[in-house]
Write a protein that binds this DNA or RNA. Structure first.
Lengths: 342, 342
DNA sequence: ATGAAAGCGCTAACAT
DNA sequence: ATGTTAGCGCTTTCAT
């Protein structure tokens, strides 16, 4: 691999001219430029990005920090981010954090390192010390589905409240009056907002929430299974259940089968997230669609604008993406009984 | 953020001594080292990795290039790679390739850029021009589930042949004699090996393969659905079906339901991959488990050894990871009828 | 329009 | 044990 000096020598010009010619960053006689471009092409010359980064103080790379938890979304979130980064000619340095890895530490390392120009971080539970350390970040930062108390920073999030409200309201509209809920993890912002949407829908309808019907879960299928079991073992059973995510709803389906209960005849069931799996359940799960790919691409687009200085990186910007209701048969809505899934 | 000069000044030593003290790369009087370490800590000094990279010619970063297709595995493959890279103190620069993006181009860009010390690439279909361009890579390279004809390069792969052989043999052991197969995409190495394992199992058992029962699929649930439909519309129907991956098996389940056929009573069904979803099917899908996380971590571990020069990067190394049979009820094996899934 | 030269922040060979 | 200095390959300012 040749370097700029060798190209300059071959072209009979100085390295400064080569740099200007290649970057269109200054005046170069058209004829000279052509000669340089021609030679660069001939020798397949590519400027060394490390050297360039050292000089320009930017790397065209964004850091992505993800929790271990995102499972189903992992693919979509990375896809949205990767695609958009590619469009914006940026690279993506990923780091998912594992239990043993401190997320705040990873963030600071990314930040201070000069390895990335900005960071996107998803940490709905505000992992240990995160919030307290965000301000130490010297580079543009975008939070995805942020934990509570992060309003001083720029974030993009799913409107969990609205989605939960809509789907709960849908259940209440069906006439269910004892709606149970299996919640997500304690202190997880997505989980908390879904619970609050659930409550608000009840309030607006004037239907009291029975606290006994609110069972803690942790977003795993397993917890959905046991949560549903618990609900159905109550003396006063629910007539509908809202699982705070589809994974738990999947567990609930399993539990229902064990108990020989039919959905929605014996009890209605709805979820949240619209994961691929939910369309394969029978009856298809009624759930809330979340625009996860869009979440990622919006975050990248904004981050790149911050990096370029097109928007003020210090002025927090917030955006909530609307969710959409996906009606299946699990809530009690009529579905044509035999539908080819494909 | 301070730089090495300022730390040196505060410590009253030269930058060389600071560098040696921090990197343990040369003799420094213990007392001096302590003073330097102390000051570095106090000012939260971190050497600039870009500058270091320019000087050392390595970045402690590995490039990861993935096809768009890996869906279900995306998470696992990245997890295995990220975890192991973290252990080896390396960063991961990802790039999934989208239709519009040329994979060979991405590879060369990664390679020539000096942005990464080595690359892991998964491209079972040998995307356009890939093989022809691999040799242009000047840095260590590891292929994952390589396309055919890549033996000149180091690769790690799942032993698809063995897995397909085992599960086909299992079906034949059940006594099925008309086993259909829904294959994966044409020219996809995983798909082709699974087909060859299928055939070899027949050969060893002395059971002829009926070509009419081999239906092309593309690894999507949709193609599994239609493939199964086609098989069951034949005059001489199969008594068992091997879907070359679980996703297609999922489609087959749907098709079976549409047709009101029971698995395994009317027709047995098995898959390949052991994706999460397969354990939720009823009856649980009999399938082949693939050690995908391990595949990723092995690749990283070996790549890092190549980078460090512990192994010869020019000597191709190959490793096939064994798969395992996961017995469910879909092949006709007796399962205790009611099993709590969790 | 072009070139010379000063960084960017660090490592490592060489000198003391 | 410590310091001096020459890169690493590029961008950019300042001369010309």
């Amino acid at each position: 691999m040749l370097n700029i000096h060798e190209i300059a020598a071959k072209a009979g010009v100085s390295i400064a001219t080569v740099s200007r010619a290649l970057n269109y960053s200054g005046p170069v006689k058209e004829e000279t430029r052509q000669r340089i471009l021609q030679i660069a092409q001939e020798y397949d010359y590519k400027p060394n990005p490390i050297a360039r980064s050292l000089s320009t103080q930017h790397t065209d790379t964004i850091g992505l920090i993800l929790p271990e938890m995102v499972d189903e979304f992992f693919m979509d979130i990375i896809r949205g981010i990767d695609e958009e980064a590619y469009r914006g000619k940026h690279y993506v340095l990923v780091s998912s954090f594992h239990t043993q890895r401190n997320i705040a530490e990873t963030l600071l390392e990314f930040m201070s390192s000069g390895r990335v120009d900005g960071v996107i971080i998803m940490a709905p539970e505000g992992q240990k010390g995160l919030i307290d350390n965000l301000h130490r970040s010297k580079r543009p930062l975008v939070l995805l589905n942020p934990p509570a108390g992060a309003d001083a920073y720029t974030w993009f999030k799913i409107n969990n409240h609205q989605g939960a409200y809509a789907i709960t309201d849908h259940l209440l509209g069906h006439g269910y009056r004892r709606v149970g809920m299996i919640t997500g993890p304690h202190r997880n912002s997505d989980a908390e907002e879904r619970a609050s949407g659930f409550r608000e829908a009840h309030r607006h309808r004037g239907v009291p929430v029975s606290e006994a019907l609110i069972i803690p879960g942790d977003f795993s299928a397993r917890s959905g299974y046991y949560g549903f079991m618990r609900l159905m073992s109550l003396l006063e059973k629910p007539d509908a259940v809202f699982a705070a995510n589809d994974m738990m709803a999947v567990g609930a389906y399993q539990a229902a089968r064990s108990l020989n209960l039919h959905i929605p005849q014996d009890v209605a069931l709805v979820g949240f997230d619209d994961i691929f799996l939910s369309q394969l359940l029978t009856p298809r799960l009624t759930t809330v669609h979340v625009p996860i790919v869009e979440l990622g691409s919006k975050a990248v687009r904004y981050l790149i604008r911050m990096i370029k200085g097109e928007v003020d990186p210090h002025l927090p910007y917030h955006e909530e993406l609307a969710t959409g209701l996906v009606i299946g048969g699990s809530c009690g809505c009529e579905m044509s009984s035999v539908v080819a899934p494909f």
